[in-house]
Nucleic acid binder design. Structure first.
Lengths: 319, 319
DNA sequence: TCAAAAGTGTTATCCTTACACCCATGT
DNA sequence: ACATGGGTGTAAGGATAACACTTTTGA
């Protein structure tokens, strides 16, 4: 690219007026106890992150080494989420680009790393967990406050548009919950100043309304990761990155349910998994689950070669 | 983020050892004459691009201004594709991050801009156009050469794996063509040194085998854009960004076919579009198309608010 | 015996795919 | 008349969703 670039660009050469820093940020997900968890550091609710450095062979390897250094957690599956430029900083005129990633892993036994923490992601997004029915916070708190926010708009068109967006994102009108709209929902709450991050300061009221806050825009990045994962499990077999080598079908189902935040129809779920030949029996069974012993399965890694393979469709139960 | 970052990062402050440059690169697509086209500059088959600068308000606005400056083409719809770090450059130890975007637009009448060119994207990817049946280059050239490449591998396992990957990506075994695997196919051809970019120099033989080359990794970025677009039209109504304000259903179908590189079943396509209420009649008709005059439609922008809306499913015709 | 989970069979419904056919206009 | 594109009806097949029910263990 370089040879050509000189011809078409303005400020090439070794000038550094436009030089910037690049930050790598990781949303590391594991599922434990039927709860999806995200890896955080410090006591400040921050995602692992660090600058991309000369010593890094690639963006991904830079990310891996930051996460390992900060948390001791080695990463398996990684995919890029989004790149964005931070608003200008005060003081230095320099800009920062943030490149965010989603990583899937299994929770390692905690070592004596002081700063590693696995936080339940529904602590940050309480309204996203519909496994025990529609959370009451939705109708009791979020809906009235979003309506109030909508009606506080200056002109009629904005009011209509705000109500419309809220209704679609949260399923207020028709009760249709779309679990993939996690990011849109967070952004609405942000616009409506119902999350701690939006109010800048420490409005404890806002914080208690809409989940735990994180520093800077880390919660938005987490929302992006959740949305990506919820959509991806349906068309790519990525859940298995979160599973132990051997598992029962119900364990698999509970993991998918934890991620999607909704309950699935057991008989149909099993059939879908089996007919897609995503798994194979080990021959063993386990009695650890209570009830009749469950057959154990392992992921058939071969499917990844065999065809462009789909993920785990979600046979939902009725509300 | 800054406040916290200082606590957890190594080389913060104003040091610049790890400072980098960020390049913005655009895949700008339009469809004209039933041919998808990509905006290029210069005679070198290059995508519009330029460095992210202090003056840019955001990554997207930086991209817009580079494209407009280099081509005079204003952009509408934009979405991020991928961010990657170039391999180190010779001479300066500095690194460059490239942030690529997909933009959809309508082709503007050419002004006296000397360097703007709209190139047919199938000139770069001749094997991707299946609208007139399976291209003969697939069975006549690509398949034998890919097999030869596979068999040239040292160990048995690699041979098996190369054959497997080729068969899935190009549908050799079962004749199943998956139009979304554009990137995988390009990467296979790259690995097999069947594209000009891989051979470094100007192997004209390679170039004629597998389409026009582009500078650096621009063709890989284009492949990424094609793959993204082919998948996205199915679940988001983005085709309409490429259409004039008013169009007939067959024109819409031809546009989708051009992007997908495959033919669609006309009656079913129309029904899908209409029953999803993606369009509404203008009341006008046109006789420009030959045959019976066609009703004209426009996109119903309102659907974007009404619900989480799907795109244009592809009711394929049999091969 | 009961609770809890594993597992099977079958039906109803919807969506996709395909086929067959008619309509309106220009040459 | 016929070629070209516009447009409608409907049936076959497959995938999904729902319901009903049996099996196997531990407490």
């Amino acid at each position: 690219m370089d040879d050509h670039a000189k011809g078409i660009r303005k400020g090439t050469g070794v000038s550094n007026a436009n030089d910037i820093k690049a930050d790598l940020i990781a949303v590391v997900v594991a599922v434990n106890d039927h709860e999806p968890r995200v890896l955080t550091i410090g006591r400040a609710n921050a995602l692992p992150s660090g600058p991309f450095e000369l010593g890094h062979r690639s963006l991904q390897s830079g990310l891996r080494s930051w996460v390992e250094e900060q948390t001791g957690q080695p990463l398996g599956y990684i995919e890029q989420l989004y790149t964005f430029a931070d608003r200008d900083r005060v003081g230095t005129g320099q800009r920062v680009i943030s490149i965010s990633y989603l990583a899937l892993t299994r929770e390692e036994e905690a070592t004596q790393s002081d700063r590693r923490r696995w936080e339940r992601w529904y602590d940050y997004f309480p309204w996203e967990d519909h496994r025990s029915g529609t959370p009451s916070i939705l109708s009791k708190v979020l809906r009235p406050r979003l309506l109030k926010w909508a009606d506080s708009a200056g002109d009629n068109e904005t009011r209509r548009e705000r109500r419309q967006r809220s209704a679609v994102a949260f399923g207020f009108d028709d009760g249709t919950w779309n679990e993939e709209l996690t990011l849109q929902r967070y952004e609405l709450l942000y616009e409506a100043a119902m999350v701690g991050e939006a109010t800048g300061g420490q409005s404890s009221a806002a914080r208690s309304v809409a989940g735990e806050s994180m520093i800077a825009d880390h919660r938005r990045i987490l929302a992006t990761g959740i949305a990506r994962l919820r959509s991806k499990i349906k068309y790519r077999p990525v859940v298995f990155e979160l599973m132990p080598p051997v598992f029962s079908l119900l364990q698999l189902q509970r993991t998918v349910e934890a991620l999607a935040g909704r309950l699935l129809h057991k008989p149909n779920f099993r059939r879908l998994i089996e007919q897609q030949e995503l798994v194979e029996q080990t021959g063993e069974t386990t009695a650890d689950t209570g009830g009749r012993p469950a057959k154990l399965y392992r992921f058939r890694h071969a499917v990844l070669d065999e065809r462009a393979v789909a993920g785990t469709k979600l046979p939902l139960t009725r509300a």
